[in-house]
Amino acid sequence: MSRYILKRILGMIVILWCAGLVIFTLTYLVPGDPASLLLGKEASQETIEIKRHVMGLDKSFLGQLGSYMYNTFVRLDFGESWVFSSSVISELGVRLPRTLIVGLAAMVLNVVFGTLLGIFAGTHEGRWQDSLVMIIAMVFVSAPDFFVALLMILLFSLKLNWLPAYGIDSWKCYVMPILASSFGGIAINARQARSSMLEVIRADFVTTARSKGQKEGIIVRKHMLPNAMMPIITGVGGGLAGVIAGSPVIETVFSIPGVGAYLLSGVNQHDYPVVRACVIFFALFASIAVLIMDLCYAFLDPRIKAQYSKGKKVK
Protein backbone atom coordinates (compact mmCIF):
# COMPACT_ATOMS: atom_id res chain seq x y z
CA MET A 1 0.00 0.00 0.00
CA SER A 2 2.70 2.53 0.95
CA ARG A 3 4.50 1.67 -2.29
CA TYR A 4 1.36 2.48 -4.16
CA ILE A 5 1.05 5.86 -2.46
CA LEU A 6 4.71 6.64 -3.17
CA LYS A 7 4.19 5.78 -6.82
CA ARG A 8 1.20 8.07 -6.96
CA ILE A 9 3.13 10.95 -5.36
CA LEU A 10 5.90 10.60 -7.95
CA GLY A 11 3.24 10.63 -10.64
CA MET A 12 1.85 13.78 -9.11
CA ILE A 13 5.17 15.59 -9.54
CA VAL A 14 5.14 14.72 -13.22
CA ILE A 15 1.58 16.03 -13.53
CA LEU A 16 2.58 19.33 -11.90
CA TRP A 17 5.52 19.69 -14.30
CA CYS A 18 3.21 19.17 -17.22
CA ALA A 19 0.69 21.64 -15.82
CA GLY A 20 3.47 24.21 -15.45
CA LEU A 21 4.68 23.60 -19.00
CA VAL A 22 1.21 23.91 -20.49
CA ILE A 23 0.09 26.98 -18.55
CA PHE A 24 3.37 28.79 -19.23
CA THR A 25 3.15 28.09 -22.94
CA LEU A 26 -0.49 29.11 -23.10
CA THR A 27 0.05 32.43 -21.33
CA TYR A 28 3.14 33.05 -23.51
CA LEU A 29 1.02 32.61 -26.64
CA VAL A 30 -1.67 35.08 -25.52
CA PRO A 31 -1.49 38.07 -27.84
CA GLY A 32 -0.58 41.45 -26.38
CA ASP A 33 2.57 42.55 -24.61
CA PRO A 34 2.14 42.46 -20.83
CA ALA A 35 4.74 45.20 -20.32
CA SER A 36 3.01 47.77 -22.55
CA LEU A 37 -0.41 46.79 -21.17
CA LEU A 38 0.93 47.36 -17.68
CA LEU A 39 2.48 50.75 -18.41
CA GLY A 40 -0.46 52.11 -20.35
CA LYS A 41 -0.72 53.87 -23.68
CA GLU A 42 1.35 56.92 -22.76
CA ALA A 43 4.57 55.05 -21.93
CA SER A 44 7.51 55.60 -24.28
CA GLN A 45 9.08 52.76 -26.26
CA GLU A 46 12.22 53.08 -24.14
CA THR A 47 10.40 52.65 -20.82
CA ILE A 48 8.58 49.65 -22.23
CA GLU A 49 11.88 48.06 -23.30
CA ILE A 50 13.33 48.56 -19.82
CA LYS A 51 10.17 47.10 -18.26
CA ARG A 52 10.35 44.12 -20.64
CA HIS A 53 13.91 43.51 -19.54
CA VAL A 54 12.99 43.72 -15.85
CA MET A 55 10.12 41.27 -16.39
CA GLY A 56 12.39 38.98 -18.38
CA LEU A 57 10.18 39.19 -21.46
CA ASP A 58 13.08 39.99 -23.79
CA LYS A 59 14.50 36.48 -23.50
CA SER A 60 13.65 33.70 -25.95
CA PHE A 61 10.70 31.39 -25.26
CA LEU A 62 12.96 28.56 -24.12
CA GLY A 63 14.97 30.92 -21.93
CA GLN A 64 11.82 32.23 -20.27
CA LEU A 65 10.38 28.74 -19.89
CA GLY A 66 13.65 27.47 -18.40
CA SER A 67 13.87 30.16 -15.76
CA TYR A 68 10.15 29.81 -14.98
CA MET A 69 10.41 26.04 -14.46
CA TYR A 70 13.62 26.48 -12.44
CA ASN A 71 12.10 29.13 -10.19
CA THR A 72 8.79 27.36 -9.72
CA PHE A 73 9.80 23.74 -9.24
CA VAL A 74 13.34 23.98 -7.89
CA ARG A 75 13.33 27.18 -5.83
CA LEU A 76 9.56 26.95 -5.22
CA ASP A 77 9.35 30.66 -5.94
CA PHE A 78 6.15 31.69 -7.66
CA GLY A 79 7.29 35.27 -8.22
CA GLU A 80 5.50 38.55 -7.74
CA SER A 81 2.29 39.81 -9.22
CA TRP A 82 3.08 42.18 -12.09
CA VAL A 83 0.11 44.35 -11.24
CA PHE A 84 0.34 44.55 -7.45
CA SER A 85 4.08 43.84 -7.05
CA SER A 86 3.24 41.58 -4.11
CA SER A 87 4.33 37.99 -3.57
CA VAL A 88 1.86 35.67 -5.25
CA ILE A 89 2.32 32.93 -2.71
CA SER A 90 1.56 35.12 0.30
CA GLU A 91 -1.49 36.56 -1.46
CA LEU A 92 -2.69 33.01 -2.12
CA GLY A 93 -2.07 32.23 1.54
CA VAL A 94 -4.37 35.06 2.59
CA ARG A 95 -7.09 34.24 0.07
CA LEU A 96 -7.06 30.46 0.32
CA PRO A 97 -8.80 30.17 3.75
CA ARG A 98 -11.76 32.24 2.53
CA THR A 99 -12.22 30.04 -0.50
CA LEU A 100 -11.76 26.90 1.56
CA ILE A 101 -14.35 27.94 4.16
CA VAL A 102 -16.98 28.41 1.48
CA GLY A 103 -15.91 25.40 -0.58
CA LEU A 104 -15.43 22.87 2.18
CA ALA A 105 -18.56 23.85 4.08
CA ALA A 106 -20.57 23.57 0.87
CA MET A 107 -18.88 20.22 0.24
CA VAL A 108 -19.88 18.91 3.67
CA LEU A 109 -23.50 20.01 3.16
CA ASN A 110 -23.35 18.49 -0.28
CA VAL A 111 -22.13 15.09 0.93
CA VAL A 112 -24.36 14.86 3.99
CA PHE A 113 -27.62 16.15 2.58
CA GLY A 114 -27.10 15.00 -1.00
CA THR A 115 -26.35 11.43 0.03
CA LEU A 116 -29.12 11.27 2.63
CA LEU A 117 -31.70 12.65 0.21
CA GLY A 118 -30.52 10.24 -2.47
CA ILE A 119 -30.81 7.26 -0.12
CA PHE A 120 -34.22 8.44 0.99
CA ALA A 121 -35.42 8.80 -2.60
CA GLY A 122 -33.87 5.49 -3.65
CA THR A 123 -35.45 3.50 -0.83
CA HIS A 124 -38.85 5.04 -1.64
CA GLU A 125 -38.54 4.41 -5.36
CA GLY A 126 -41.69 5.21 -7.31
CA ARG A 127 -43.53 6.65 -4.32
CA TRP A 128 -44.39 10.31 -3.78
CA GLN A 129 -41.35 10.90 -1.52
CA ASP A 130 -39.10 9.87 -4.39
CA SER A 131 -40.87 12.12 -6.88
CA LEU A 132 -40.78 15.09 -4.50
CA VAL A 133 -37.04 14.82 -3.88
CA MET A 134 -36.31 14.31 -7.56
CA ILE A 135 -38.41 17.31 -8.63
CA ILE A 136 -36.62 19.57 -6.13
CA ALA A 137 -33.27 18.15 -7.25
CA MET A 138 -34.18 18.78 -10.87
CA VAL A 139 -34.94 22.43 -10.08
CA PHE A 140 -31.61 22.97 -8.34
CA VAL A 141 -29.60 21.07 -10.92
CA SER A 142 -31.08 23.35 -13.56
CA ALA A 143 -30.89 26.64 -11.67
CA PRO A 144 -27.50 28.38 -12.13
CA ASP A 145 -25.80 29.17 -8.81
CA PHE A 146 -25.52 32.91 -9.49
CA PHE A 147 -29.28 33.01 -10.03
CA VAL A 148 -29.95 31.22 -6.74
CA ALA A 149 -27.43 33.57 -5.11
CA LEU A 150 -29.20 36.65 -6.40
CA LEU A 151 -32.59 35.38 -5.27
CA MET A 152 -31.14 34.70 -1.82
CA ILE A 153 -29.70 38.21 -1.64
CA LEU A 154 -33.09 39.60 -2.59
CA LEU A 155 -34.82 37.60 0.11
CA PHE A 156 -32.38 37.51 3.02
CA SER A 157 -30.54 40.81 2.56
CA LEU A 158 -32.98 43.20 1.02
CA LYS A 159 -36.34 41.92 2.20
CA LEU A 160 -35.67 40.30 5.57
CA ASN A 161 -32.39 42.07 6.29
CA TRP A 162 -30.98 39.01 8.08
CA LEU A 163 -27.68 38.59 6.31
CA PRO A 164 -25.18 40.96 4.69
CA ALA A 165 -25.19 40.85 0.91
CA TYR A 166 -21.41 40.99 0.44
CA GLY A 167 -18.02 41.10 2.14
CA ILE A 168 -16.18 38.91 4.64
CA ASP A 169 -16.54 40.93 7.82
CA SER A 170 -18.33 38.38 9.97
CA TRP A 171 -19.37 34.72 9.89
CA LYS A 172 -22.77 35.89 8.71
CA CYS A 173 -21.22 36.90 5.40
CA TYR A 174 -20.35 33.28 4.69
CA VAL A 175 -23.82 31.83 5.21
CA MET A 176 -25.28 32.77 1.85
CA PRO A 177 -22.23 31.96 -0.30
CA ILE A 178 -22.02 28.53 1.32
CA LEU A 179 -25.71 27.80 0.83
CA ALA A 180 -25.82 29.21 -2.69
CA SER A 181 -22.87 27.13 -3.83
CA SER A 182 -24.08 23.95 -2.11
CA PHE A 183 -27.58 23.64 -3.59
CA GLY A 184 -26.42 22.57 -7.03
CA GLY A 185 -24.00 20.03 -5.55
CA ILE A 186 -26.61 18.64 -3.17
CA ALA A 187 -29.00 18.17 -6.07
CA ILE A 188 -26.41 16.45 -8.27
CA ASN A 189 -25.23 14.27 -5.41
CA ALA A 190 -28.80 13.32 -4.47
CA ARG A 191 -29.46 12.16 -8.01
CA GLN A 192 -26.20 10.23 -8.09
CA ALA A 193 -26.82 8.63 -4.71
CA ARG A 194 -30.35 7.68 -5.70
CA SER A 195 -29.30 5.98 -8.91
CA SER A 196 -26.47 4.05 -7.27
CA MET A 197 -28.82 3.00 -4.46
CA LEU A 198 -31.27 1.71 -7.06
CA GLU A 199 -28.46 -0.33 -8.56
CA VAL A 200 -27.79 -2.19 -5.32
CA ILE A 201 -31.35 -2.28 -4.01
CA ARG A 202 -32.15 -5.25 -6.24
CA ALA A 203 -28.74 -6.87 -5.83
CA ASP A 204 -28.75 -10.53 -4.85
CA PHE A 205 -26.75 -9.97 -1.69
CA VAL A 206 -29.46 -7.59 -0.47
CA THR A 207 -32.03 -10.36 -0.95
CA THR A 208 -29.63 -12.64 0.94
CA ALA A 209 -29.52 -10.15 3.80
CA ARG A 210 -33.32 -10.02 3.83
CA SER A 211 -33.52 -13.80 3.88
CA LYS A 212 -31.37 -13.75 7.01
CA GLY A 213 -34.07 -11.76 8.77
CA GLN A 214 -32.05 -8.54 8.91
CA LYS A 215 -33.98 -5.33 9.55
CA GLU A 216 -34.52 -3.06 6.57
CA GLY A 217 -32.73 -0.08 8.12
CA ILE A 218 -29.61 -2.11 8.85
CA ILE A 219 -29.70 -3.63 5.36
CA VAL A 220 -29.60 -0.11 3.93
CA ARG A 221 -26.71 0.91 6.19
CA LYS A 222 -24.64 -2.24 6.18
CA HIS A 223 -25.23 -3.81 2.79
CA MET A 224 -26.60 -1.26 0.36
CA LEU A 225 -24.80 1.94 1.27
CA PRO A 226 -21.19 0.66 1.22
CA ASN A 227 -21.81 -0.91 -2.16
CA ALA A 228 -23.45 2.24 -3.47
CA MET A 229 -20.66 4.49 -2.20
CA MET A 230 -18.27 4.17 -5.17
CA PRO A 231 -20.02 6.49 -7.63
CA ILE A 232 -20.85 8.86 -4.77
CA ILE A 233 -17.16 9.06 -3.82
CA THR A 234 -16.25 9.69 -7.44
CA GLY A 235 -18.64 12.62 -7.53
CA VAL A 236 -17.46 14.00 -4.21
CA GLY A 237 -13.80 13.59 -5.18
CA GLY A 238 -14.40 15.56 -8.36
CA GLY A 239 -16.14 18.22 -6.32
CA LEU A 240 -13.28 18.33 -3.82
CA ALA A 241 -10.81 18.98 -6.62
CA GLY A 242 -12.99 21.90 -7.63
CA VAL A 243 -13.27 23.32 -4.11
CA ILE A 244 -9.81 24.88 -4.17
CA ALA A 245 -10.47 26.60 -7.46
CA GLY A 246 -13.36 28.24 -5.69
CA SER A 247 -16.28 29.52 -7.57
CA PRO A 248 -15.34 32.71 -9.41
CA VAL A 249 -19.05 33.24 -9.89
CA ILE A 250 -20.03 32.97 -6.23
CA GLU A 251 -16.97 34.97 -5.14
CA THR A 252 -17.87 37.70 -7.59
CA VAL A 253 -21.55 37.82 -6.62
CA PHE A 254 -20.78 38.07 -2.91
CA SER A 255 -17.55 40.10 -3.34
CA ILE A 256 -15.39 37.57 -1.52
CA PRO A 257 -11.67 38.12 -2.19
CA GLY A 258 -10.91 34.44 -2.67
CA VAL A 259 -8.75 32.37 -4.99
CA GLY A 260 -11.33 32.22 -7.76
CA ALA A 261 -11.60 36.00 -7.85
CA TYR A 262 -7.78 36.25 -7.79
CA LEU A 263 -7.42 34.04 -10.84
CA LEU A 264 -10.15 35.95 -12.61
CA SER A 265 -8.44 39.31 -11.99
CA GLY A 266 -5.11 37.78 -13.07
CA VAL A 267 -6.57 36.71 -16.39
CA ASN A 268 -8.30 40.04 -16.96
CA GLN A 269 -5.15 42.08 -16.29
CA HIS A 270 -2.65 39.79 -18.02
CA ASP A 271 -1.04 39.21 -14.64
CA TYR A 272 0.58 35.94 -15.68
CA PRO A 273 2.51 35.05 -12.50
CA VAL A 274 -0.84 35.05 -10.67
CA VAL A 275 -2.50 32.90 -13.34
CA ARG A 276 0.38 30.44 -13.45
CA ALA A 277 0.62 30.06 -9.69
CA CYS A 278 -3.13 29.58 -9.37
CA VAL A 279 -3.16 26.89 -12.05
CA ILE A 280 -0.26 25.01 -10.43
CA PHE A 281 -2.07 25.14 -7.09
CA PHE A 282 -5.29 23.87 -8.60
CA ALA A 283 -3.41 21.00 -10.24
CA LEU A 284 -1.74 20.14 -6.94
CA PHE A 285 -4.99 20.09 -4.99
CA ALA A 286 -6.81 18.24 -7.73
CA SER A 287 -4.23 15.46 -7.73
CA ILE A 288 -4.31 15.26 -3.94
CA ALA A 289 -8.11 15.04 -4.06
CA VAL A 290 -7.96 12.25 -6.62
CA LEU A 291 -5.39 10.39 -4.54
CA ILE A 292 -7.58 10.67 -1.44
CA MET A 293 -10.50 9.43 -3.52
CA ASP A 294 -8.56 6.39 -4.72
CA LEU A 295 -7.48 5.60 -1.18
CA CYS A 296 -11.13 5.80 -0.11
CA TYR A 297 -11.97 3.23 -2.77
CA ALA A 298 -9.32 0.91 -1.42
CA PHE A 299 -10.50 1.45 2.13
CA LEU A 300 -14.07 0.54 1.15
CA ASP A 301 -13.53 -2.22 -1.36
CA PRO A 302 -11.17 -5.10 -0.59
CA ARG A 303 -11.04 -6.01 -4.28
CA ILE A 304 -9.54 -2.64 -5.20
CA LYS A 305 -7.19 -2.81 -2.23
CA ALA A 306 -5.95 -6.16 -3.50
CA GLN A 307 -5.23 -4.57 -6.86
CA TYR A 308 -3.21 -1.77 -5.28
CA SER A 309 -0.99 -4.04 -3.23
CA LYS A 310 0.18 -6.25 -6.05
CA GLY A 311 2.02 -8.54 -3.66
CA LYS A 312 -1.09 -10.54 -2.89
CA LYS A 313 -2.64 -12.63 -5.60
CA VAL A 314 -6.14 -11.69 -6.65
CA LYS A 315 -8.46 -14.51 -7.58
Partner: peptide, 23 residues
Protein backbone atom coordinates in the same frame (compact mmCIF):
# COMPACT_ATOMS: atom_id res chain seq x y z
CA UNK B 1 -37.85 -11.25 10.73
CA UNK B 2 -37.58 -14.06 13.27
CA UNK B 3 -38.77 -16.64 10.75
CA UNK B 4 -36.34 -15.57 8.04
CA UNK B 5 -32.94 -17.07 8.58
CA UNK B 6 -34.18 -18.71 11.78
CA UNK B 7 -36.98 -21.14 10.99
CA UNK B 8 -36.71 -20.87 7.21
CA UNK B 9 -33.49 -20.21 5.34
CA UNK B 10 -32.75 -19.91 1.67
CA UNK B 11 -29.83 -20.89 -0.53
CA UNK B 12 -29.59 -18.73 -3.60
CA UNK B 13 -29.01 -19.57 -7.19
CA UNK B 14 -25.91 -17.56 -7.98
CA UNK B 15 -23.16 -17.68 -5.36
CA UNK B 16 -21.19 -15.08 -7.34
CA UNK B 17 -23.68 -12.35 -6.47
CA UNK B 18 -25.39 -13.69 -3.35
CA UNK B 19 -22.58 -12.57 -1.04
CA UNK B 20 -21.87 -8.97 -0.13
CA UNK B 21 -18.51 -8.26 -1.83
CA UNK B 22 -17.47 -5.76 0.85
CA UNK B 23 -17.95 -7.98 3.91
Amino acid sequence: LQVRGGKIAMIFQDPMTALNPLM
